[in-house]
Every structure is written in C-alpha cells, then in structure tokens.
Design a protein around this nucleic acid. Structure first.
Lengths: 173, 173
DNA sequence: GCTTGACCTGTTATGATATTACATTCATAG
DNA sequence: CTATGAATGTAATATCATAACAGGTCAAGC
C-alpha cells in the first residue's frame, strides 16, 4: 500500500523511533486514522464508532493503555461499560494491524506504521512508559534463523525490550 | 561458571533445542537441580524446600506451568495454598536465573541452561506446548543494534515465538 | 419495502492471573 | 540463647480476560 502522504515531508513520521522523537503529533494521529479507514475498507471490515473511538484514544499518546483504561474512557462517552466492549474493539484493531498488544504490560498501543507489513519489536521506557516500534527486520531474521536451526516454524513472535528511552536516560544521568 | 559435567558426554544436554529433542530427561532434571544448588549458594541465597520443590515441578516437563498449577501441586503436598506461596517461589527462581517467565502464556518454565549467562529466546509449540530456549545471542545482538540506533538502552528483553516444533510439524503434514 | 442473515453492541456472570498487607515461623549470627 | 532478618502462611482484594446470550443495525436480495 502507498503511504497517504510523503513521510519525508513530515519530520517525525520519518523517524523509526517516532514515540521518542518530538513530532507533529496531531498530524501523526490524523494520518494513522485516515490510514485506518483505508486498511479496514480494503479488508472489507467496518471501522464502527466504538472501534474508531478506541483507536483515537490509543492514538492520543505514544504509550500503551490497558483494556480497562480504554473501557473507562468509553463509558464516560456513552458506550457500553462492560469489559467485552473494550476487548472486542481492541481485538479488532489488532487483527487489522492498527494496534498491537504489549505482552509485558497487558496493554495496547496504536500501530505507528499501519498498512505496512511488519513484524514489530517494541521498546518500552520504564520511566515515561513511552512505547516505540523499532526496526525489527534484522531481529526477526535472526529469530527465524535460530528457529530454523532446530526445525521450528514461527507463526507469531513477541519481541519487546524494557529500558530507558533517550530522554529519560538523559534525565537520569 | 564451569558446567558440572561434560555436556559433550550427554546426548540431549548438548542440544540447543533440548525441549524438542529426545534426551535423558531424568539426567537433564537432576543436572538442573544440582546446578541450582550451586547457583543459589554462590549467590548467598537459600534454596528452601518450597523453592526447591517448585523447581522440581517445573523440571518435570519441558513446558510452562501457570502459577496456579504450581500452587495446586504444592497444596497437595502440604505447602501453603495461597497464591503468594507460588508467586514468591517462582519469582525467586526467576531472579536466580533458574526459571523463566513466558509472557505470552502467563506461565513459567525451568531454565535449561542455569548458571550460564544468557538473554533467552523461547520457542513455544502451539500444538504440544513444549517450550525450548533457542540460541538467542544473534537475536539479542540485532535487538541491541535496533535500540542503539534510536538511543534506547535495553535492560530486559522478551523474545518469544509461537509456532510448531519439529515433531508437531511432522505430525501435521 | 420487506425479509433475512450476518455482524455488531450491550449485559450478566464468571474465570484467570496477580498483589498488598500483615501475622507467624525459621535460621543463623552474635 | 536471643535478637534479627528472611521466609512462609493467610486473608483479602486488585487486575486482567472470556463465555454466553439478548437485542439492535444494516445492507443484499427478493
């Protein structure tokens, strides 16, 4: 799929470490939303009000939200306030590649590169909680290689790192 | 730390894909236990009865057990039957590098290479539930490189792959 | 325009995983 | 032998997740 705008025009969108870089976040979020429209309609799926709203909520910040955090937001806005409401919308977004589940945090984050095929790796700052999607190609390749050596075939992978983002490392030092 | 025996003498222990290979499991488990004694005493820690028993339970099979599974076993053997009993022992084993937590499964597995420094990667068979520790050096190196590119410093990493082990892939085909 | 069927949303209820707080027991250094 | 810190036991509760079913929405085809 072609990007909806030239990323080289957009300082921030071009960065792999989007979440850690200062950038035009309103643009970043609006772009993700419009890509979401494209992705879902191409898949013959419907980006309904709840689903769209959940994505908007995830897009507000570059960190991960628990399902119950999302649910609380939804409830104040007139949507249902039972867990399945949030879990179903989140599951849909993950299936469509519009959001990711962070296993370490039992939480969800909006995808910063929707519509682009990628097996993501996540960098999670333990100080400010920001979550960035790293360039995962080489990591995934190394993992595939390790699996191939023992005859294991990988279907899904979880690659997450916990540590300090540049800004927090700076602040700590 | 020097290994407690020559692994080249031990078909199975030499394999990186121990969990997927047929091997002398009694030996494998006994070896892990004796290494555990060494590791804990070297660290000035105590391998108490509960802790030792939890490790033995994890060592019975090469798959991951939930904290409540472990707890149920402990309870039938006269140990406490409240969650903290299991969680504390498991936490201790993880701290000592004698067990690992599998984030994807919310479960724990005995380490197959205790006493050897390693940032592990796990291969989880979705069919037989076996969990193997893969050779993770190159994977971790690639992840470190990706993190370094954006100035992120990694403290802990989670690398897990879900798929089919050689035997189950064979059986499915 | 009606029907029908698929999908989506909402709710109840429950299950699964994990932690806090505090009381008690145990091992060991002094 | 006793003081001390570590380990264990227990109750209570917090947090995360799903099963099962009822009702509503919407668009395709008649």
């Amino acid at each position: 799929m072609a990007p909806l705008h030239e990323h080289s025009d957009c300082p921030g969108c071009a960065a792999p470490d989007l979440a850690f870089a200062t950038h035009d976040h309103a643009h970043c979020a609006a772009d993700a939303l419009s890509r979401a429209e494209v992705v879902t309609s191409a898949a013959g799926a419907r980006l309904t009000p709840v689903r769209r709203r959940v994505l908007e909520i995830l897009l507000e910040e570059h960190w991960a939200l628990g399902a119950y955090d999302v649910l609380a937001r939804l409830a104040t806005e007139g949507f249902g306030n039972q867990p399945p409401v949030a879990y179903r919308a989140l599951e849909f977004l993950v299936e469509q590649g519009l959001a990711h589940r962070i296993q370490r945090l039992n939480a969800f984050t909006a995808c910063t590169h929707p519509g682009e095929a990628h097996a993501p790796a996540f960098l999670i700052c333990r100080s400010c909680s920001a979550v960035a999607e790293a360039v995962a190609g080489p990591v995934r390749a190394a993992l595939d290689e390790a699996a191939a050596q023992v005859g294991f075939s990988i279907e899904r992978s979880t690659i997450e790192a916990l540590g300090l983002c540049p800004a927090c490392r700076e602040a700590t030092a």
